[in-house]
Design a protein around this nucleic acid. Structure first.
Lengths: 242, 242
DNA sequence: GAGTGGTCTAGACCACTAA
DNA sequence: TAGTGGTCTAGACCACTCT
């Protein structure tokens, strides 16, 4: 079963054994898998080694662990489909479903613009910018963590209230025309801060979009980093042939 | 420095300390960071705990480790920009740069179609399909791992040679018109197999696109999973305002 | 050969869950 | 209270890199 003299680490061998059990259907979604103690006894390895194998399956999303309960094979949940190539895909989709996204404001401050952000926004370093952190959730489930920067010059009278409702509606209301957004997509392990805001475990991969949003007249409106909870959402787009 | 009675795990505290040193510029890209032994002595913790902190920075992409050498703060490398909303973005971009992507065929077989794939391709379970695994690389650096399925009915005479050159050109040559592709984007920890094909370390996050490509007349042509090496590429698209 | 990271062990204490 | 996973230790052996 496990070859202790193999050049393949024991934890990787055990991970393979468990993976095989999941893929073959021997362990089905929702099933509990053997505990660390059981595995360490069964294969004559230390508990730490067994744990390492299971932890690896965890960050791959194949199993879920709960302290005090055990480790269970992940079930596929119904996920909400979001278009990655729409700026307001999230809001739109949620509204279509008759739900209202709830915004939680984690930070809202007026700060001197850091150098890297100032380059993107096209303003001077040190000029005042709004810095905001929001979590958007539905039914108490965090869906999106957003960190964004907007020049104070563009939105001098921005209030907390506007962020708790709809930032975009407010921007349109004061007469600014929002254009398109350049979006870079990354797979990342989030910081512990972002992970806990989305109620995710440490070291789970997450989709990140870095956005530079323009006004219709060409000026940069906003720079934002949006982290998406993949547990609940699927991200789609259409790629064109040639 | 480190509070052993804190509710925050020691490894998380140490990770924070190192992160702070990197973000403050005390440790610059390319610098070596203290070894596991040095850290365990300095903070009076075990080497395993120090390792856990550094491993976490590794999968977040902030440092890179080499056995026998040490751990270094990651340098930002120039990355090639690819459009996520173009089917042939990779080929196109590489050709624009005057380079030729080299294809390595890892698997090419005619198999009975598995159930889940048959649903997507719109054919009967067990009907014959081509299953292919390719790695595309530039200058010996793996860029993309692709696993794909195409009905044998559509491409009865597909040869290894066609895959080593250009699959799409071959498809066009035999008179099929390629349409658009529905693409789902995911952040994933790849299997060890995929990771090693792309020469990545275990447990590093990666961008995955799952594609369903259609012919112009509506039929499904291909289902493919494409894994992108983020180390070398950046993925961009334009999101439309409203 | 000295130093590095990679793996592994056999124990320990803790926080949490469920009965 | 018993069992689970989360953390941590102090050692050990190995493979690798550099000199």
């Amino acid at each position: 079963m496990i070859d202790k003299n193999s050049h393949i680490p024991i934890y990787a061998q055990l991970e393979g054994i468990l993976l095989e059990m999941i893929e073959s259907g021997e362990l089905k979604p929702g099933d509990i898998i053997p505990s660390e103690n059981e595995l360490s006894k069964k294969y004559g390895i230390s508990r730490m080694t067994a744990k390492k194998a299971i932890d690896s399956l965890t960050i791959k999303g194949l199993v879920e662990r709960t302290q005090g309960k055990g480790t269970y094979v992940s079930s596929y949940e119904k996920k909400i489909e979001l278009p990655l190539n729409r700026l307001r895909g999230f809001t739109q989709k949620v509204c279509e479903m008759g739900l209202v996204p709830e915004n939680k404001l984690l930070a809202f401050e007026k700060i001197p613009c850091p150098k890297n952000i100032s380059k993107i926004l096209g303003i001077e370093e040190g000029e005042k910018v709004w810095r905001m952190e929001r979590v958007r959730q539905i039914d108490e489930i965090p869906a999106v963590f957003e960190e964004s920067y907007i020049s104070v010059k563009l939105l001098p009278d921005l209030k907390e209230k506007n962020l708790l409702e709809s930032k975009f509606d407010y921007i349109k209301k004061i007469g600014l025309e929002i254009g398109n957004s350049e979006r870079e997509i990354l797979a990342e392990i989030p910081s512990d801060y972002v992970a806990s805001a989305l109620r995710l475990k440490r070291n789970e991969p997450i989709l990140l979009a870095e956005n530079t949003t323009y006004l219709k007249k060409g000026e940069v409106l906003e720079y934002s980093k949006i982290y998406y909870n993949q547990k609940k959402y699927r991200f789609k787009l259409i790629a064109e042939g040639d």
